[in-house]
Amino acid sequence: MRPMFRILAAAAFVGAVAFAPAPARAADKVNVVATLPDLGKIAEAVGGDRVNVLSIASGLQDPHFVDPKPSYIVKLRDADLFLLNGLELEVGWVPPLLDGARNPKINPGAAGYVDCSKGIPVIEVPGSGTTRAEGDVHPLGNPHYLTDPLNGKLVAETIAEALKQASPGDAEYFEQRKKEFQSSIDVGLFGKELVEQVGGKKLDRLCRAGELDAFLEKESAGKLGGWLGKMMPIRGRRLVFYHKSYSYFNARFGIQVANYVELKAGIQPGPGHLAELVEQILSEKIPVVATHPYYDEKIPRLVAEKGGAQLVVLPLLVGGVKGADEYLKYFDVITDLLTQAYGK
């Protein structure tokens, strides 16, 4: 009799849970879960009021080291779309979340699994023969492509396509908002005046091809404004960075990295390297040391102090520092911090 009772009790419990009212969810909206706040913010910009967006990582976090908490599994359980950065940035924590979520809509290979690195021109892809003697290298290349605003435009494209598939009735709405978002990046990057004169599309193409300067010189077109204009006075300047997290940004804005605090990814720098670093900063008069909010500030601060350089804490993700809580504001803040650090 006792086992029978147990089975009945278990069945009653299961039944009660199964038929309990599901948490309230807006019916027609697309439920989007993004691994990073950057992707979440772009999804919000494109999706407007037709989407519910949740981001897993906080802007304060190092996206390599996010704990796969069970509560994230619940978020993924209810997702229609799952946006991830890709390029194995989240390889340490996304697989158990997807496994736990039991949501075939967002499994790799399904339409709801949206790898936002698709179509991104990836840099720093390790050559064949690279081993982990180089540290925890990203085998598919540098995954921090969202630090280049032009890549933000490509991601908006990918997200808009995924949203259109998830909710075909709102396709026009998403298309419209995507275009608005993309042109706001153009204006942010090149300045309103130049975009009006030359057109965002052309500027985008020239900038990607590295022909923007030559074009501006030749055509004596309007003045370069926006973030590029703001960064002009410090273009070509050098700094020491903590990790290879800003390679895309540096390429776009012409900042040169003289060396890294973390010599090999994921491996704590040794005192020998740090001493050499200080020596290099002193002898080459490198004015700035840059780090991210989640790294222990002690070491980069000490390196900067000993070398007489300025320490600047830059956000890697949207929301990483105060004021950088939208994708566009993020670049406002970064360019502010960098120009201030160089004293220009």
Binding site: G119, I120, P121, I123, E124, L154, R205, R208, A209, G210, E211, S247, N250, A251, R252, G254, Q256, V257
Partner: peptide, 15 residues
């Protein structure tokens, strides 16, 4: 800039 920019029409099309 420390990298080869994603220049060229072929790559542009890829992107």
């Amino acid at each position: 800039r420390g990298t080869t920019p994603p220049a060229g029409p072929a790559k542009g099309e890829g992107a």
